[in-house]
Amino acid sequence: MSAAASALSRSRKRNVIPGFGLTLGFTLTYFSLIILIPLLALAIRSAGLGFDGFWKAATDPRVLGSLRVSFVTALIAAGVNVVFGTLIAWVLVRYRFPGRRIFDAIIDLPFALPTAVAGIALTAIYAPNGTIGALFAPFGIRIAYTPIGIVIAMIFIGLPFVVRTIQPILEEVSHEVEEASATLGATRFQTITRVILPSLTPAILTGFALAFARGVGEYGSIIFIAGNIPFVSEIAPLLIYIRLQEFNYVGATVIASVMLLISFALLFAINLIQAWSRRRYGYGD
């Protein structure tokens, strides 16, 4: 504590930008109130079970099944979003066409739309008797009420995160770099794969992390489209809700804690890769 305090006072003396103590204090208080204390309460609650109890609750087959559904679908959805989000960002940045600004504004709608509305709308369309669902039904492919439906809902809500992280970086990649690549004899395809995509890597990773996190935490839209069959299309957030309805608060906190741990580990790993790639690709200084 005293070491931290002396480090604080040292940096206060050196720092040219004023208000370090004030802003850091505010940041820590705010961070504690909004994020740290609720998460800590969660940890304490689930710790009340003891390790064996916790392990037993966490490895319950239905819990494991729901976690698998949640994380696998979120990873697939984030992967799909990265591919098509990058494509959409490319179109929005590089071409000028009528309606571009409207298209650009529509990208943000999943941010604003109540997720339940999105869920109901997607279900209506992708159900076997819906507009798009009916096209797949003859081939025996069901979209709504299966994990595919979950992926689609996650794609819907995660897309803006990818587009909005890649767009500004793509705008920054100068047109001259592409021209330089062409003058050196690179084909259009080589320019995209060897020059443009690598310079977008950090932004793509950020977009992936955000879309993934959003997908894992999503509840509202998915419960409508998923069908919620245990072991098949039941997501972990729904199981938490079910446990709460059964007044099994400890069971709910256990699932929540496990979700948090896995999410944290994954996001931390992505952050590390991202930091490495930023250094590698010459951003940040």
Partner: peptide
């Protein structure tokens, strides 16, 4: 190019 246009990655 005037602004080098090197591939920074």
């Amino acid at each position: 190019f005037q602004h080098y246009a090197l591939f920074r990655h």
